[in-house]
Design a protein around this nucleic acid. Sequence first.
DNA 1: CAATAAACGGACCGCGCGGTCAACTTGCTA
DNA 2: TAGCAAGTTGACCGCGCGGTCCGTTTATTG
Lengths: 199, 199
Amino acid sequence: MPSTRPLRADAARNRALLLAAAADEFAERGLDASVADIARRAGVGKGTVFRHFATKDDLIAAIVLDRINALNAVGEQLLEAADPGTALLEFLTAAARQRQQRDLSFLQEAGELNAEVTQARTKMFRTIHTLLDRAREHGAVRADVTGTDIILLMCAPNYVTSYVSEASPDLWQRYLAIIFDGLRPEGAHPLPQPPPAVS
Amino acid sequence: MPSTRPLRADAARNRALLLAAAADEFAERGLDASVADIARRAGVGKGTVFRHFATKDDLIAAIVLDRINALNAVGEQLLEAADPGTALLEFLTAAARQRQQRDLSFLQEAGELNAEVTQARTKMFRTIHTLLDRAREHGAVRADVTGTDIILLMCAPNYVTSYVSEASPDLWQRYLAIIFDGLRPEGAHPLPQPPPAVS
DNA sequence: CAATAAACGGACCGCGCGGTCAACTTGCTA
DNA sequence: TAGCAAGTTGACCGCGCGGTCCGTTTATTG
């Protein structure tokens, strides 16, 4: 598919260095991390950043794309799992762990309008829908919950714990457990609002 | 307590105009809303902003303070309620509704280091702890949940729905219901992590 | 090894930001 | 109503940002 010639060796190395440095810098400094600092951290000149990524947003999109693909790979592997209920829980655990290690959630909306990113995200959403459907058919999840609900709730445990800084790095597991209890069929109360329609 | 003389009439009016304009502008544009735009929206000069609030962060802190106090007033009123279980649910509903009308969550950390804000927040946290304790004693909430858990989970419904833009404005109620189901004693599974210690 | 295109680096640009200031206007009070 | 402190204003400042450009370096290839 890519009709472009392969990158020169040094260019490929620098591209990888840049992606890693940018992810670190964004994780530490948030969206306001400057391109100049990222370049310094990667040990390259500022011009090199813009040679690889036409704009700062393109750089962000490249990072987001990598993470979505990594998560989707986990999800697709879990489609083969024996127990659909624990498969869903394990996927949510993997998602939360990825964000725990490096919280780049604020990059999501910045990479929103990139075509490749939306495509990868749609693919991951399909995986999630399938994981959820199987868990529901298996009776591990209440009947009135949809795949879109899961997508929306997926990052809540990290969000919740992001406000308590000196906490155990595994605190998110507590809130994933609470939320997952809310997703179980036992003791479920009727939901006051219909699920959102999106993808 | 305040030994300062009262504001001149026009100054008081402008201060109120500024707070309202700033809240609107922040809600629309996020943290990056510029002081110049806020001044324009309030119909005053840029210099006036800095006369009332020494720095942009001070302006943010003033907005945050207002919102915390408003929420705490609701909480204190609910301490008198007959049913502690629904009182807790109603408090969480009020908190979510405030954020639904104008999501200024991103201002929280900006106003973090302001003394007045932390004081008001501590006061509200105490209210929440009391609401939770009564609900737990009443058997409306699982025994292994603490007030700090509630504080952390409080804003999750809005966070969750903030990613779906064309959704019903009441969608947060769906996720508040799911999370609240996870807080109930029926069907609760043991939690994998201890609660955080903070206030 | 020579030729060449690809990649690099960092000085440079324009912009918009938060914040300042001194000249001006206005509400308060005696 | 006169006097003045309190309040207002917008031009202005320095800074750091994203992005550009071109002279230089370097990997590749026949």
